[in-house]
Computed example of a mutant assay.
Amino acid sequence: MDIVSFIETLAGKWFSQRTTHYLASQTSKAGQSNLLMEVLPATDASLVQLCEAQGQDPSHIVCGLKVDQDSRLDGDTRNTQRTTVMVMLQPTAEGKGVLLQASSKETVALGEYSLDSDVLTLTTQTPDGTVQERLWFANPNLRMRTSVLKVGDIEHMASFCSEIRLGGAPVQS
């Protein structure tokens, strides 16, 4: 599977159940999210603008993804809403490529992606440290996702999500 095919499998509405473990305090927190994921074509104006703003050549865009997220952690009284746009640039022969992410909170993260054995790995640098996220499918409507936040060589946070497709299943080829 190539990166465009994998991104296309992400399209649709998803319910996400998440557990986050904070390693320093040895505490965990559960949460839920509703996700709406939309595949964006390489010619999408928001993808081109993001590339240009980050000094990347828009002609190298292979696809993009827009994620609308509505989340709540257990114990919180208010939901967190965010929109993130991701741009995948042309991968190397080894399947690695540049990843740009921009969120509605005005932050832009530069990173890389790799796709190996139908597992997508996203690695991004954020103000908090390095985040490595892995996504894979147990079946077409059940997706797994893990993430780890590292500061230097120290892991600070780890999370696991199981995500169920609620609608908008991708077209089967």
Rank of each mutant, 00 (worst) to 15 (best):
M37D: 02
G129K: 01
N34K: 03
D70V: 03
D70M: 01
A30P: 10
S173D: 07
L23G: 14
S104C: 00
L120M: 05
Q69C: 03
A109S: 13
L36I: 07
M144I: 13
Q81I: 01
W136V: 08
V98Q: 04
V39K: 09
P41K: 07
Q32N: 10
Q69L: 04
E38L: 10
G95V: 01
A109L: 11
Q17D: 12
M88N: 03
F137Y: 15
S114K: 01
A102K: 12
A53T: 14
L10N: 03
L115N: 00
D74T: 15
K13A: 06
L89Q: 06
L100A: 10
L135W: 12
F6W: 06
C63G: 06
T92W: 02
T130M: 04
R78C: 10
L40S: 08
G31E: 05
L23M: 14
L10W: 05
S162G: 13
E112S: 03
D57C: 12
R134E: 03
V171Y: 09
I61D: 05
V119H: 04
D76T: 14
S114M: 02
P127D: 00
V39D: 04
W14P: 00
E38M: 07
E106T: 08
G31H: 08
V108E: 10
S147D: 13
F15V: 07
S147L: 12
Y113D: 00
I61F: 12
I7T: 08
E155C: 14
I7S: 08
T121W: 02
P140Y: 14
Q125G: 01
W14K: 02
Q90W: 08
L120E: 00
K105D: 15
A169W: 14
Q132T: 12
W14Q: 00
L40E: 06
L99K: 04
Q101P: 06
T126D: 04
N139V: 11
E38Y: 06
Q90A: 10
T9F: 04
L36N: 03
L120A: 01
S114T: 01
L110I: 11
G31T: 11
P170M: 14
D116L: 03
E133Q: 09
S33M: 07
Q49Y: 02
